[in-house]
Design a protein around this nucleic acid. Sequence first.
DNA 1: CGCTTTTGACCCGCGC
DNA 2: GCGCGGGTCAAAAGCG
Length: 569
Amino acid sequence: MEAAAPAFGRPRPVVKPEKPAGDSDDDRDSPSNQHLLIKEEQLESARTEMGEVREENQRLKMSLGQIMKDYEALKMQFLGIVGREAKKLPEHNKEQQQRPHDDQTEETELVSLTLGRYPMAEKKKAVEEKNINGGDKEEVVKQALSLGLNCKFEQESTAATVKEANSPNRSLTISADHETKEDAGETNWPPSKGLKTMRSVDDDALPTNPPKRARVCVRARCETTTMNDGCQWRKYGQKIAKGNPCPRAYYRCTGSPTCPVRKQVQRCADDMSILITTYEGNHNHPLPASATAMASTTSAAASMLLSGSSTSSAPNTTAAASSSSSSSSHALSFYSNSKQNFYLPNNSSIISSTSPTHPTITLDLTSNPSSSSSNPSTHFGKFPSSFPNSRYPFTSQLDFGSSRNNVLSWNNGVLSYNRNNHPTTTPTNNIYQNYLQHQRNTAMSLPHQQPPLPDTIAAATKAITADPSFQSALAAALTSIIGSGGTSAGTVKSSARGEQPLFQLTSTATTTTNKGNGCGTSFLSNITTATPSNSPPTGNMAFVPANSLPFSNPKSASASPGDHIDLTN
DNA sequence: CGCTTTTGACCCGCGC
DNA sequence: GCGCGGGTCAAAAGCG
Ligand SMILES: [Zn+2]
């Protein structure tokens, strides 16, 4: 995206490429030379731009190359270590291990992520450039890191079981992009639209009507009142929308007193099991690791939306970052290297509609839960990469932990959705408990960063975690992973009875977009909008999520009344 | 005691 | 201008 960003991001006096018409015009000797001159100028500038872009591309390519090298090297190291570890560890209860999967996954992931670390420096650069070129608002907080790393998760030890079902490699592409310029856009929200009366009176007396905030709507099956997305929400209102027996609830983020983020939750009238959550705005404060996934997703979506793209993708759309040979797509090449494709959950789809009111993008993850056995790949549609006019790729990683019956998980880069309507199996609680227990006990002994790890890993981890940017990225990545991990834990339950190891690893997905111009990027985390340096703990925080995991949070503010929703059913 | 939820009132944009 | 519907406020109640 870097490449593209500059080119398209900044509405410079660039001539729109599609207007080669200019040439024809020239021929036409229409009116005055002025016209010609102007055209020429435009051409000139365009060329210049092109040149710049190319240069940048080159640079980025090189960076990428190096990154990849590093990555490979580290990967090897990692594998070696892991292998050793695996041997060392007498196999704990296999069962437990499986569950802890999540844990392990996390850990694994962490390490994996480590591999991607180098990029940071480079990426930063990229980011900077981006900012320069594309940052609409200079406010771009530096914390906005854009980094892309590609990791593969090899769950050697743990995954042994899983392996069968899943190929050993999972790759996770992460790209944190803070800059979500959209922020700017969204940030506007504060100008409380209406209430000028007594409410926000002075501030911006004239809110210059901000561009409407983008909204991201997520549809997912969920039993609980609200999806546990890791954020803290306070309910501030409830209304019964006409045409839907179910009340719509309004929540506000309490992460920060000034956080503009809001969400409204409502059940689908047609299918009560579907929960429709609409997010609006970007967080202006650090988020718990567990919350970054959703946040990044929404912001990414918002970005995409705002960038002006209308999309509606069908499940089977192939996004694939087909290698657009153009030099302008490093991102793509990056991905292609890793030969990764991103998938959305089964028939999940993304639809962005710019309604008069608010531009809204909808992620529909509700599609049929159908059998998730056998070939996952068959059930999944590749992520639609086609965002017509968008220059921002869109990411989708969601963890809806709260649901007991649903499971979203990523396997091998594929997101699988599992729905278990028959809670006949072991109660979630047990699993949860086990999970926790396991966490405490087993987790420690696992190849974590904490305990007896080979220095290598420890060192690597340290080093990595030291880098703030990385932290953010990591946090995001882990978040998503973990978040889903929680989910997966839930899944475990379902798996308990099944043979399908689908749930094992969950990670986030990112998508790449490479439209005609091919600048694909996945960006997944734009972690916080506003806290650059605060994130230090993030790296570590990533592991905290245990608490914030989707598992039912008894206390979670928003989740309390639980089933309360008695829908008319 | 602090925080969240509940809930009716209020505000505002929009269509008629 | 009026009514409707969506969204928000804020007082009161509930909870740990
Ligand atoms: Zn927030």
